[in-house]
Amino acid sequence: MLANSSIDNAASQAKTMFGEELIWLFIFGDLCTFTLFFFIFGHARTNNSVLYHASQAKLNVHFGSINTLLLLSSSWFVVRAASAARKGLIQKCTRALAGAFILGAGFAVFKIIEYIDKANAGISFSTNDFFLFYYLLTGLHFIHLLTGLSLIAYFIYNFRANGITRQNHATFESGAIFWHMVDLLWIVIFPLLYLLP
């Protein structure tokens, strides 16, 4: 259980800022980078809309939709875990994290299937500019996802081994913020690549 003083500390910290300051800096940098990518994609798409439409038609919207649901549900579990962690409920927290991990891993599995599907169809990042963006955006997002999954696995292990302390709670909140950013990025990448008319 989280000690009372730790709850107070965590709560007072939460009033000023959720998570650690540096995670917000990282997220700011990451979002700046992806925003520039999105603008460059938009510009390139406008200049060559025929190619982009034809290439977009080769993507599997069902995979993208399922993955969106998986990731959104996973984020919901992370919210539940964060709420439980603040109350010092270790079991509830780690169970919710396990749920988030399973759903996130599901996303990874579908993404790998999709990559294999594209490789079998002879599509790579050098096929054309659309697929360069496809592999760049989804690939970087995939790396973020794997990083997030590793963090979730670590938090489950850490909470079970050491309980919830002020220090690992602050780190966990930063991890939770990171996971929501992974979610947010996908919410933009999915319509941009799969759905844009």
Binding site: F28, T33, L36, F37, I40, L140
Partner: peptide, 10 residues
């Protein structure tokens, strides 16, 4: 963009 944007944002 990938390599430089983080550094500029800092």
């Amino acid at each position: 963009v990938w390599a430089a944007a983080f550094g500029i944002a800092v």
